[in-house]
Design a protein around this nucleic acid. Structure first.
Ligand SMILES: [Mn+2]
Ligand SMILES: [Mn+2]
Ligand SMILES: [Mn+2]
Ligand SMILES: [Mn+2]
Lengths: 222, 222
DNA sequence: TCGTCAATTTTGATTAATCAAAATTACACC
DNA sequence: GGTGTAATTTTGATTAATCAAAATTGACGA
């Protein structure tokens, strides 16, 4: 009756996948799900049918999958654990923000509710993890902030980095080494479509240029 | 190639089982192993044959099982993790010593080497866990202390509690509430075979009586 | 309208871990 | 030395999770 790590990973992937859906879409395609989980497409289909059987998802063959209320609750719980654990490993244990993801990926499935509560308390009921990702509340709500990317925020205006949407360790180290972690204030000076780049001023006043691909992964508040 | 949680649990159970063997015995009986893991005897037989195939154990049908050097190394690693995690949860996270076992039982299989090293460092390379159980060293040695139980230690002589060999939460709470945790100094005042009991003086001077069963679970140093 | 093709599903297998219950074995006792 | 019993092993099945490759579907462009 209690969900396996595998089931938890599927639900979490669907949950996150839903937040990435463009505009009107309501279903996460099976291919995207399989890709996110690193499994064969056929495996995802089989598993999703089983999840539908347990009323954790709604499944429309050939269209995709969506969480039910029950599925959402479980998924939010796992995501909450993941992000609390990441923050705990950084703040309390002193690990680096680029090395906590894999541990959190495993620990999210096994730590007790008592330990999670203890962690949440130690951290002072935090709202975001080390990457600026919002932490679902204990009752399953995912706080939503409207953020802009470096591609859409106003030019020549100080903005604060709020979130980095790429868990890749090399990318995170790059961000850190250039003082672009969440909390830092920066300013976009120019964008150029032709050169596919964004020029900005880092907190220390240093100028630097990012490709648009990378720039789109930095979310900021005005 | 990397051992599953299940394999790690088998190896750890055999490892601990070996330390409980009376004098000349060298093999852990299958029944004892199955009992320790809470699985059916036939399951243990099947699994142990697979472990033998991987050269992690030596298996003598109808006699029992023993770890090879390779098996010992893996088992010591898991036990080290378990005990470091328990101590970490008590010392750093502030959990109680009677509630950390189950979390450690799961986390021992999933946390990264980097996290374990960080924990070991934070704790100052500890030698024993919250229950006084010795922590295997990073190179797989299990430090051995010769301890006596409350049934064998000298009478009317101050002794220090060094280890409590029962993970049961109710028992641990009892020990704690009577100030008998490792580190406390106590004195055995009398033993009586007929009444099956041991009378002792707790640190605060309070007199109390334990049954021999319970008394045998408290290990002390002179 | 139709064909193509990418996405998806189905099929057939495999691996790991487990159980219940039947069969076997060892050994201790008479 | 036989025999009974407890421990152990074997047998036959089940469940969860996965893959590769074949089959199917559906949407879009010609
Ligand atoms: Mn996970
Ligand atoms: Mn994160
Ligand atoms: Mn374990
Ligand atoms: Mn312990």
């Amino acid at each position: 009756m209690l969900p396996s790590s595998t089931v938890e990973n599927y639900l979490k992937a669907i949950y996150v996948g839903e937040t990435h859906l463009t505009d009107g879409q309501k279903l996460v395609p099976m291919g995207q799900l399989a890709g996110a989980l690193g499994i064969a497409p056929g495996t995802a289909t089989t598993m999703v049918k089983a999840l539908a059987e347990s009323d954790l998802v709604d499944y429309e063959p050939y269209n995709g999958v969506r969480l039910t209320a029950a599925g959402q609750k479980l998924a939010a719980r796992v995501l909450r654990r993941h992000r609390l654990i990441e923050l705990f490993l950084v703040q309390v244990v002193g690990m680096k923000w680029d090395e906590v993801h894999d541990d959190a990926e495993q620990m999210e499935h096994v730590v007790s509710d008592a330990l999670i509560e203890r962690i949440d308390e130690m951290l002072g009921r935090p709202e975001v993890d080390p990457h600026g990702d919002p932490i679902p509340t204990a009752d399953g709500q995912l706080p939503h902030r409207t953020l802009e990317t470096l591609l859409t925020c106003p030019l020549h205006t100080p903005v604060t980095v709020a979130r980095v949407t790429d868990q890749d360790a090399a990318f995170l180290r790059f961000i850190e080494s250039h003082n672009l972690k969440p909390g830092q204030t920066i300013e976009v000076e120019a964008r150029d479509d032709v050169s596919d780049s964004v020029r900005l001023k880092a907190p220390n006043g240093v100028r630097m240029t990012l490709g648009t691909r990378a720039a789109s992964k930095l979310l900021v508040t005005g």
